[in-house]
């Protein structure tokens, strides 16, 4: 009985971790082609950029993942939770004709950042 209860608690904790996710819009930056893609095409897929600096436009997506596990009875309780933030950032520069000149994407996870420069 105790082993079954422990198994159920651990299973519920793992399952709740799978479901606790806030999803962002930004994905598949490889679809954009240098020299071909226009600003309007990117905005039509990803929406307006989150940061502008001259001809450099940046889109940022933030995913939060977390799970919580609580045991409580009357006045006594125990809560365990964990969460992490994954930030995806894609930085693009456009020429005077509005066409893509360069694209760099990055993903920051707890523990570090990995950068993926163009071309794909």
């Amino acid at each position: 009985m105790k082993r079954t209860l422990l198994f159920l608690c651990l299973g519920a904790l793992a399952f709740s971790g799978c479901l606790s996710k806030h999803t962002g819009l930004l994905n598949n930056p490889e679809q954009w082609k240098v020299g071909e893609t226009t600003r309007r095409e990117v905005v039509a897929k990803w929406g307006n950029p989150d940061r502008l600096r001259g001809n450099e436009w940046t889109w940022i997506s933030i995913d939060t993942l977390g799970s919580k596990f609580k045991i409580a009875y009357m006045m006594i309780g125990f809560t365990a939770s964990n969460s992490g933030v994954v930030t995806s950032e894609t930085r693009m520069t456009f020429g005077p004709d509005g066409r893509l000149q360069s694209v760099v994407s990055s993903e920051t996870v707890p523990g570090g950042t990995t950068w993926n420069p163009s071309p794909w």
Partner: peptide, 15 residues
């Protein structure tokens, strides 16, 4: 649940 309460949460935010 009761006594043991795992919490499930799913959310989305967009413009």
């Amino acid at each position: 649940g009761y006594i043991v309460t795992p919490t499930f949460e799913r959310g989305t935010m967009y413009y």
